Computed example of a mutant assay.
Amino acid sequence: MGLRMAHPGILRSFLRGCMRGFVRWLMLLCVVCGAAWLSGCAATSVTSQVQSFGQWPPGRKAGTFVFDVLPSQQAPQAPGAVSQDKLQAAALPTLQSLGFSLLSPDQAERADVLVQLGLAVRVEPRLRYEPYGSHGPFGPWGLFPPGAYAYPHGRSPHHWRGGSVWWGPGWVASMEPPWVTLRVSVILRDRRTSQVLHEAHASHDRLGAVDESVLPYLFRAALQGFPDAPPGPRVIDVPLPQDAP
């Protein structure tokens, strides 16, 4: 007895499903490869969103300063938190480049300015949804279109309905590198009157873990243009040092 040929409509439906699955998988692969290529490119600058408040008194020189640490900043920090010592070390080169001179804590009464530093860190987990799971568009055995291994309502991937083959959806969630936002603040006060002379903030977004090495560039961006920094939000790129060839 000869083999019975499959119905042409069923065969065409199967081939269309395979082709659609392959095209979608190929598009997803291109997107992933493009993102990986971009992330592999070496960054040349740190981009920050900056906003300044207050007008530094005209004609006033930078003078001497000490760091003003709040009681809450002196309390024990959570594991992995950035300490005030690291914040001060990150901000000091920028302050010195603007003409400020650091005094030791025991000379605080001689300082002209009190400098208060702050850091806020926000980490947002991200999920990636893969339409074909970890097996690609043709399932774990290379035979089935997308979602053949996820069967809602207990149906098998070979379920027949209306003369065509039905394939269930196969979305799988996986964790992506988190979205991290670092936001530094700098407040300059007159030591004698406690008046706020200048306030600046700089925030930086990135994928991955918290990177303390960008903090000096955030402080440099926050105080760029001091003492005549324009009011209102702006975007500032601080170049990274490039290795000599």
Rank of each mutant, 00 (worst) to 15 (best):
G2Q: 11
G2W: 02
G2P: 15
L3G: 09
L3R: 05
R4H: 09
R4N: 12
M5G: 07
A6W: 05
A6P: 15
A6S: 13
A6Q: 05
H7N: 14
H7E: 14
P8T: 05
P8H: 07
P8A: 08
G9E: 07
G9H: 09
G9R: 13
I10S: 08
I10W: 13
L11F: 14
L11H: 07
L11M: 14
S13E: 01
R16I: 14
R16L: 14
G17I: 03
G17N: 06
C18D: 01
C18S: 10
M19S: 13
M19E: 12
M19D: 04
R20Y: 07
F22D: 10
V23P: 01
R24L: 09
R24E: 07
W25A: 14
L26M: 10
L26R: 03
M27N: 05
L28R: 04
L28T: 03
C30W: 05
C30S: 12
V31P: 02
V31M: 09
V31H: 01
V32T: 13
V32F: 08
C33Y: 09
G34M: 11
G34V: 09
G34D: 07
G34Q: 06
A35W: 08
A36P: 01
S39F: 02
G40D: 04
C41W: 09
C41A: 15
T44V: 05
S45P: 01
S45Q: 09
V46L: 03
V46M: 04
V50D: 04
V50A: 07
Q51V: 15
S52G: 06
S52P: 00
F53Q: 12
F53L: 13
P57A: 11
P58R: 05
G59R: 10
G59V: 10
G59C: 12
R60Y: 10
R60V: 01
K61C: 11
A62V: 04
G63S: 09
G63E: 12
G63I: 11
G63T: 12
F65W: 00
F65Q: 05
V66G: 04
V66P: 09
F67C: 11
V69K: 03
L70F: 03
P71D: 10
P71S: 04
P71T: 00
S72A: 15
S72N: 10
S72V: 06
S72H: 05
S72W: 00
Q73C: 07
